[in-house]
Design a protein around this nucleic acid. Structure first.
Lengths: 353, 353
DNA sequence: TCGCATAGTGTAAGCGCTTACAGAAAGCGC
DNA sequence: GCGCTTTCTGTAAGCGCTTACACTATGCGA
């Protein structure tokens, strides 16, 4: 085994308590200068490094925070969210000398099943990247004493107990739709994401607010429920419903896709009908995934400050762990509209009528 | 605090030893079926989850492996190596139920300074992504009892103590240069990487071997020492030395860049001289970074199986931790030449003479 | 019926640290 | 010279587990 505190104590001819005191600062009492140096010297000579685990057990603090992921392929490279988020988290942890332990599980179910065991000792707090709301797990976790913060998930929290860091979906969606309205659009379709993600509801809220602010009546028939990872044909069906099955005067002149994949799929479906983007239909997405910039025409969309979300989440958690922040703190970061080439004023009235 | 083994023992009316036995299997003796169920039931009722730290301390095994990085910006997104590598590591750890702790430090020095403290208890083994050879740290670490494997670093190891997973630089470089030779090139320049990375020497070895295999005499004047992250102008200077300061008949007809950044920089310098690629000069790089495919013309280069390297490294380490593999095991994975548009036969003799 | 394996359980000694508490030594005022 | 701080150091009790060992019931063959 590695050298322990006992060897150092023997070498320095002091008790282990003294060694611990000089090496970890705490312990209340001060140590005489001479003893201090004797211990330091012994530790150096023996290349002693205290055991993090033993120290963690004794102190009840590991200086380690857990990051829980359930990505099927825990693919830092292929997931557009994970990478930047991890970057943000790591940057903060590096600065604050925290270690980061990655709990990666293959499935949502597995992540849920293992979650409680992370609560015990391994780490001081949890960063949860489990954006689905269809489980009571978060509630259960809140009942425990382990601090955690939700990353990219600002779900409703009536009891005010959840900490989270996320983009401000409502405001960002409102701005996106506001942009469309400012261009002159009045019939704006909303192609929603899956409601297991809280962001869908929030983006829909933003959509409604923008309409309301502009005095445009909300038309439920323009809102199409959807899935985050659109099944092939789902968006196509939405387009069919709103274009093929309606008289021209009732068709939307713009589409707000609740994520870029949806928006891009809508672009395809629209183009297949001979509609030009943005001349005939404007399009705005959400997320600003790499594909958005690469699309033809490049997609106007809302960029999430993912890295910053990771940073804020990490900071928030550390504050909670250190008892500097109360539960219920929410960090909502502004999204940013990336103006590209898929939005324009609606076709002129004269032409339409 | 969270519920401990004592509560469970009390609830089930057994000793903590029995609880431990049923919950962790070990302990030699078997537990009566009825007792077993009583304990399980109690544990469930109390939502007991054993402390990983305490267990780790007692067992001397944490089921956690450390990944040591020293990226300035620990940027999973911007570093072309880190992301895929992490993916590979995580995939293996997920499968084998290991946790991954990220030790990220800002600088090489800091990483070195902290390395020894990771040796103690925190994790069962270390994955080292510290490809620089200009430190004795790896040797020092080898003297300790903590198993580790080098990732993307297959440095010379006279004592046969180091485990590593890396691309087979020698073979890949030999293949790359062999490809150039097969096309008819005889004067092939080597634009080397920084020698703090062992890959430079290895790629140069491969270069020499390819020459040797083809019976082409080695011309040291064609070998240009370099840096991995080429300072502006460094590659330009190399091109100047080999083209501007030589008679045409002695100029290289091809360049092997030890990494894509070098190759791409060489392409620029060459083009600035009116040389066409690949008509006048062929070019092959190494790494296949995203920019290689995006370049104009797209760069022919050697792809590293980065994800696989991460996987093999993780597997190797786990084998070592479990005592299933002896030190000194090296996993050298084949690179793959990605044929794109920067290699062609050299200009015909008739035209050159 | 006794002796002996065998199964099941408890006791206690760790794992390597921290830290409350106690005790010893030294310094001080009176 | 006495009692009092003050300063330093050691003792020991944890932290929450695992596991060697001891012990008590059983069951079985003789």
């Amino acid at each position: 085994m590695a050298v322990s505190i006992y060897e150092v104590a023997a070498e320095a001819k002091v008790s282990i308590a003294t060694v611990s005191r000089v090496l970890s600062g705490g312990g209340g009492a001060r140590v005489a200068r001479a003893t201090q140096e004797r211990v330091l010297e012994a530790a150096r000579r023996l290349e002693y490094h205290p055991s993090g685990v033993a120290r963690g057990l004794a102190r009840g603090r590991m200086n380690t925070v857990g990051l829980v992921l359930y990505y099927e392929q825990p693919s830092v490279t292929s997931d557009p969210y994970l990478g930047p988020c991890l970057d943000g988290v790591l940057a903060v942890h590096k600065r604050d000398h925290q270690n980061t332990v990655l709990f990666t599980k293959s499935s949502w179910e597995e992540a849920l099943a293992h979650l409680p065991s992370y609560c015990n000792g391994y780490c001081d707090g949890l960063l949860l990247m489990l954006p689905r709301t269809d489980s009571a797990i978060v509630g259960e976790l809140a009942a425990r004493d382990l601090p955690f913060v939700l990353v990219g998930d600002s779900r409703d929290d009536p009891d005010g107990l959840l900490c989270c860091a996320d983009v401000d979906n409502v405001a960002a969606a409102e701005a996106a739709v506001g942009h469309l309205i400012a261009l002159g659009h009045r019939r704006i379709a909303a192609f929603c994401g899956d409601t297991v993600f809280c962001s869908s509801g929030q983006r829909l809220d933003g959509y409604r607010r923008a309409l309301e602010a502009a005095g445009i009546p909300f038309d439920p028939s323009l809102v199409r429920p959807g899935t985050y990872f659109p099944r092939p044909g789902a968006v196509e069906a939405d387009v069919r419903a709103l274009w093929d099955e309606r008289p021209e005067s009732e068709r939307p002149t713009a589409v707000f896709g609740f994520n870029d994949a949806i928006a891009l799929a809508a672009a395809d479906a629209l183009r297949a009908r001979g509609l030009r983007i943005p001349a005939d239909v404007s399009l705005i997405g959400f997320d600003d995934v790499p594909a958005a910039a690469a699309a033809d025409p490049p997609l106007t969309t809302v960029r999430q400050p993912i890295r910053a979300i990771g940073e804020r989440a990490a900071e928030l958690l550390l504050a909670r762990v250190n008892g500097e922040a109360e539960p219920g703190r929410r960090a909502l970061l502004p999204g940013e509209i990336i103006f590209r080439a898929t939005t324009a004023p609606p076709p002129s009235r004269s032409r339409r009528l």
